[in-house]
Design a protein around this nucleic acid. Structure first.
Lengths: 204, 204
DNA sequence: TGTACATCAGTGAACGCGCGTTCACTGATGTAC
DNA sequence: TGTACATCAGTGAACGCGCGTTCACTGATGTAC
């Protein structure tokens, strides 16, 4: 079989990504360097171009992987609290990857790759069914936008529920991103307890 | 008077910061470069060390200035909605500075300078009086932390109100940071309308 | 008012560092007859 | 089974770039007598 070389390629790609993740965790996106990765793997810099077209391509893969990983972490949540708890748990376990997803998308690139869009839609697809159905309908203009959004993303969701999902996500992100930057810690507040309080009103 | 030289110094410092803000707005923190600023001012790189001890010192000043500017923008708000609207307005007008404040504090430095702490406390001092007084008391452990926090920061606020202020800030930050990264836009949703919906339940 | 002196803004060269990427090439691995 | 060939991983040199920071120095500005 010719799969030997392919398997080897895949393995090397994974090793490269592993090192990249370590650099990301320790120094942020700017610390992810092709040359430094090669050095860590005991190999010359240019050799990595056999496996990734460019540094940007590597970063895009890290984003897609992170989305998939986060999605795996939250999928199967039985209700919004569980979703939120798992979401937060993932972010605390992988702060740099979380930042990569939500705090730095436009790092020089203009178009968002399709793979990234798809990955983020998958997250919404997990969240949406966990939102309680009741709610006043949004104002007409917003309702139209929400309907179009649901249609384009192929989400089975009413405008009212869509709106609540988006806002719940927004609040969740607010809490999590303040927490991973250490804002609660620097106030001397225990984030676990704050989170419990926020959970109670996430789906407002 | 000897103030001539001093006034000249202050003026140059301001010019340097102006260029730095432009770079920040156009390319993020990493784009803020001593050498590039000097070039833009038609001066040699090392000359700027007469005005700022290091690149890090310059960045710290940008943070402090941004806090002051944001604080000025929200101060005088009559209620929470007005505060939130002004807060968001400032963030939309200065997304890179907003990111500098809330999305990237630990960029390599270990200790947060006092000036930055003070500046962020000032923001809270503006927010706290706008929170409605009623609310169930937080659980005991959290209450104790909130009391200590208020005491340390010299804020005249009950634990219940303190908690609501923190959570309102968290939600507001979530919305604003998703918006400035273009997340709502990429969903085809009008952020203004979403914001109106979120405003209705900010203080839950 | 004039002169001696201290202050200090700005310079150019240099240090040491790192980066992404291209290119011509070597040598090993797997493939096909 | 053995041999000729294509594939492709990895190399080292090179290009061009930028950065923060230190240092010894020049020359202008303001100060003190």
């Amino acid at each position: 079989v010719n799969g030997f070389r392919q398997r080897f390629r895949d393995q090397v790609r994974d090793e490269v990504k592993d090192v990249a993740l370590t650099q990301l965790a320790e120094g942020g996106v700017e610390a992810v360097s092709i040359n430094a990765i090669a050095r860590a793997l005991g190999v010359s810099g240019p050799s990595l171009y056999r496996y990734f077209a460019s540094r940007d391509a590597l970063l895009t893969e890290l984003v897609v992987d992170a989305y998939a990983d986060l999605e795996a972490a939250v999928s199967g949540a039985a209700d919004l609290s569980a979703f939120a708890t798992r979401f937060r748990g993932w972010a605390l376990a992988h702060p740099a990857r979380y930042r990569l997803l939500f705090a730095a998308p436009p790092e020089g690139r203009d178009e968002v790759p399709d793979a990234i869009i798809d990955a983020s839609v998958a997250l919404m697809r997990t969240l949406v069914p966990l939102i309680g159905a009741a709610a006043p309908a949004p104002p007409a203009a917003l309702r139209a936008e929400l309907e179009r959004w649901a249609r384009c993303r192929d989400l089975d969701v009413s405008p009212a529920v869509g709106l609540r999902a988006v806002l719940a996500w927004s609040r969740l992100h607010g809490f999590v991103s303040l927490e991973i930057e250490g804002n609660f810690a620097s106030m001397g507040l225990d984030a676990d307890k704050l989170f419990a309080a926020e959970l109670a009103v996430l789906d407002a």
